[in-house]
Design a protein around this nucleic acid. Structure first.
Lengths: 234, 234
DNA sequence: TATAATTTGTCCGTATGTATA
DNA sequence: TTATACATACGGACAAATTAT
C-alpha cells in the first residue's frame, strides 16, 4: 500500500472515531507533515483521497474541515464497497434465490462486452438490513474473470470474494439510478404491494484495467434505500 | 483561472468534440507536457480534474482512456451545473409557479443553518425538457446570500445568476436521492397519475467557504429523469 | 481599516517505483 | 526482456484566501 493511502486510512479512522470532532477540522498540513514524517505532496495526496470520498472539504486559507454527511442510513455513493461495509453497524443478511451458470443473452453480451460463448453466472439474491427486506439484486458475472462462485459465496459477500480471494482490484463502476414501478415478484420479495415504487440502480463494474467483470440491476425498497451524493465543484 | 484548469477545459473540449475518438485515449503525459508547455505536475492535475468529473480513467502503464458514460440523457452527478447546462442540446424551459420572500419555518432554519429572522425566498418551479414536464423544484434561498431574486431570474437560470451576476462560487452540494409516491399536486404538474412514483433529490448547497446558501427538493418524472454516477475505486 | 501571519492552492523540477505492452 | 506510461514521493518557491493582530 502506498504511503499516502496509509496516511489517508489512518486519518479516516481518526475521523470516524471522532478524534477531530472538537475542532471539526484536521490539523494543518505542516502538522501532518511532521506527524506522518512525509512530504507536503504526500499529505496533500492523502487529503485529496479523503476529499474525493466525501470525508473532508478544504477551504483555502482556512483549513481542512470534516464533512459529516448527515447520512442517517443513506448509501454513500462516493465510498461504496458493498452493503456489508456500508451498514457495518447493522446486520446485513442475504437469501440466495437462484444461482445459474449459463450462456448470456445478446443484451448481456453487449453489456458485459464479452464473447458470446463465455459462460455467465446469473445470480438473484434478496438482501436484508436488520431483518427487513432491502434490495433484490440481479447480478451477472463473467465466469472467465470471476470463476467458481459457489452457493456459499453467493450467500455472503461476493465483493469480498473478488477482492480478497481472487485478489482482483475493482476499478470503476458506472451506475444509473432511476425509479420504477415494482413488478409483482419483486414486490412480494420486498414486502410491498404490487405497483408501488422502487429505486433501482443499473451497474457496470470494471476492474482497474478496464475489463468489465459484472453488471447488475438492484431493485431497492423505496422507503428504506436512499443514496447520498457529495459533490465538490472545484 | 489556474493553468491546470485551463488545460483541463481545453482537453475536455477536445474530448466532447470527438478529437480523441480514434484512439479512445489521451496523448501521453510527456506529449501533453510539450503540447501545453507545462510541468508534469500540472498535466497530472488537469487529468485528475477530468477524472473526477468522469471524462477519463487512467490505467497505469497503459494510458488515459476516455470514459464516455453512456449517458443517453441521464443527469451526470459528477458534473452537474444545472439542467440548462446538462441538456445543452435539448430545450430546457421553466414555468415559475410561485416566488415568495418570507420568514423560514423552524425546519428550514435548521437546514439552512441561518438566523430565524433571515428572510428566505420560497420558489416553486416546473421545468420542461423538450416541452415535456421533467421536474418540480422547491427551492429555498437565504436572501442574505442570494438577494434580489426577481421573477425574471427565477424563470431562467438561478445558477447563472448566482455565479455570473453575484460572482459567488458554488463549492459543495450534499444530495440525497430517493424514490417516493407522487402527491396529487405534483402528479398533475408532471402529467402523471396520482400515486405513481417519483425520483427525488434533497439538496443542501454551499459556497466555497462552506456557507449554506440554499436547500431544495426536486421531484422528478420517474420515466424521464435518471442519474449517472461514475465511481472510481482508487 | 490596514497589516501581518497562517493556511491551502498552484507550479516547477527530479528521481524512482510499478504496471502494461 | 525491454521500453513505455502512469504512480508515488521528495524538494522548493510563490500565489491567494482567510484569520488574527
Amino acid at each position: 500500500m502506498s504511503k499516502y493511502k496509509e496516511i489517508a486510512n489512518m486519518i479516516e479512522e481518526k475521523i470516524v472515531n471522532g478524534f477531530y470532532d472538537d475542532t471539526n477540522k484536521l490539523p494543518t498540513e505542516d502538522v501532518l507533515i511532521k506527524e506522518y514524517q512525509s512530504s507536503r505532496n504526500t499529505i496533500r495526496n492523502a487529503i485529496n483521497h479523503l476529499m474525493r470520498r466525501g470525508f473532508v472539504v478544504t477551504v483555502q486559507g482556512s483549513g481542512v474541515f470534516l464533512r459529516k454527511g448527515d447520512s442517517d442510513g443513506a448509501i454513500n455513493l462516493e465510498n461504496f464497497y458493498g452493503l456489508t461495509k456500508q451498514f457495518k453497524n447493522k446486520k446485513v443478511t442475504t437469501k440466495l434465490i437462484s444461482l445459474e451458470l449459463k450462456k448470456p443473452s445478446q443484451q448481456l453480451v453487449s453489456k458485459l462486452k464479452c464473447n458470446p460463448e463465455t459462460l455467465v453466472y446469473h445470480i438473484k439474491r434478496l438482501r436484508f438490513v436488520d431483518g427487513d427486506p432491502f434490495v433484490v439484486e440481479y447480478t451477472y458475472y463473467n465466469s472467465d474473470v470471476v470463476p467458481n462462485i459457489t452457493e456459499k459465496i453467493a450467500q455472503t459477500s461476493i465483493f469480498s470474494y473478488i477482492r480478497e480471494k481472487l485478489k482482483l482490484e475493482i476499478g470503476y463502476v458506472d451506475m444509473i439510478i432511476s425509479a420504477d414501478i415494482l413488478d409483482s415478484q419483486d414486490a412480494i420479495l420486498l414486502g410491498l404491494e404490487d405497483g408501488m415504487p422502487s429505486i433501482n440502480t443499473e451497474n457496470v463494474e470494471m476492474l482497474k484495467n478496464g475489463k468489465i467483470f459484472a453488471c447488475s440491476k438492484d431493485v431497492h425498497h423505496y422507503r428504506r434505500a436512499k443514496f447520498l451524493k457529495l459533490s465538490n465543484y472545484i
